[in-house]
């Protein structure tokens, strides 16, 4: 459903993405792992045109676009098919939780206001925030804000939701509530591409794990492949560092 081909991106002389390919099917939950600076965020941002790639193609079903020279219209179309959940939430500070969720529907997609409010409330209910419709982001905890962020993405009913380390800005005790919400929407069949350091999420929810390092995909496979029998030396090293000593993988 989403195919990325040979994406390159440099900042100045610093080549961050050195030809990444990616292929995601409907209903996939793909987790990207990798050390800091390996280009995971940059990859997601290029897919959503928040960053302009130097070269590369994206295919969305029948739609093929050049990631470097896409027209405004193509960019708009792709953004209609994707949603982004940001590391630091990026909720609209001047809008209530409900308005945050309906903004993209009403203004971006011209959904009638009454319908949008219905969809928005349902999305907020789904993430457990039925009592926070009218709260502003400044009145919500980090975990609640990120759940609004997820509701905002879900409400758009996109083909795929891109998550960039959705829990890494949260206090440890708030991580669980966000992961639970993510697990729930994964169960409903939402296609997700998730950058995370939460190994438990990768292990329990993902059906495919990609390990990136130095701007390339080093290895990919099922969670079992990657966690139990990684082939590449770099993958092994990375896992050794991020997994607890006595970590064992059950399946």
């Amino acid at each position: 459903m989403l195919k990325i081909n040979d994406i390159h991106k440099s900042f100045g002389n610093n080549e961050i993405l050195k030809g990444v390919d990616l292929s995601i099917d409907k209903g996939d939950v793909v987790v990207i792992l990798g050390p800091s600076g390996s280009g995971k965020t940059t990859l997601l941002r290029c897919i959503n045109f928040l960053e302009k790639a130097d070269s590369g193609q994206a295919g969305f079903g029948d739609l093929k676009v050049n990631l470097h020279g896409a027209s405004k219209r193509d960019i708009h179309t792709i953004r209609q098919k994707t949603a982004f959940v940001f590391q630091n939430y990026n909720l609209f500070n001047n809008k209530t939780a409900l308005e945050n969720v309906t903004e993209g529907l009403i203004v971006g997609r011209r959904v009638p206001k009454a319908d949008a409010i219905g969809i928005g409330k349902k999305a907020l209910d789904k993430v457990g925030l039925s009592d926070k419709y009218d709260s502003y982001p400044s009145q919500l905890s980090g975990g609640q804000q990120q759940r609004v962020g997820i509701a905002r993405a879900v409400a758009l009913n996109p083909d795929i939701i891109l998550f960039d380390e959705p829990t890494s800005a949260l206090d440890p005790e708030l991580v669980g509530e966000v992961l639970t919400v993510m697990k729930n929407i994964a169960k409903e069949g939402t296609t997700m591409l998730v950058v995370t350091h939460e190994m438990s999420f990768a292990k329990d929810v993902a059906n495919r794990v990609i390990f990136m390092d130095g701007g390339v995909v080093v290895e990919e496979g099922s969670p079992h492949d990657i966690f139990v029998s990684p082939k590449e030396e770099r993958t092994k090293k990375f896992l050794k560092r991020v997994l607890p000593e006595d970590y064992t993988f059950y399946i």
């Binding site: 928040l50 953004r79 982004f84 630091n88 758009l156």
Partner: peptide, 23 residues
Amino acid sequence: VNKGQLEAAQSVGLSNFQAYRRI
């Protein structure tokens, strides 16, 4: 105003103009 506000607006499908005007 954090750059993320503009990016979030773009990511939900607002044009640049709409993002500036509304967010």
